[in-house]
Amino acid sequence: MNDKERLLTRVRVAFFKLTEASLFLDTHPTDSKALAYMEAACREFEEAKAAYAEYCGPLTLCDGVGKDCWNWIAAPWPWQMEV
């Protein structure tokens, strides 16, 4: 696994955590353990996303701003084997 894959794996893991936690919270909105888990997962996701965007390219539209070229459209897209 190279650095890019490692960084993207961190994003995926964090996003999976926050997705599952949010589904649980939808039906258990006052569960304090789940609320804390969700908060930690969201922080983890934001940090991992920022690290990936800095070295590898944008994951969301706003990751791609502030450059001379709009690199959002640059390959690879997620279904292409490289990612």
Partner: peptide, 14 residues
Amino acid sequence: WSYIKSLEFPVKIK
């Protein structure tokens, strides 16, 4: 919706 440029789980079929 907004898009995240990543699959939820990677797919790499050789």
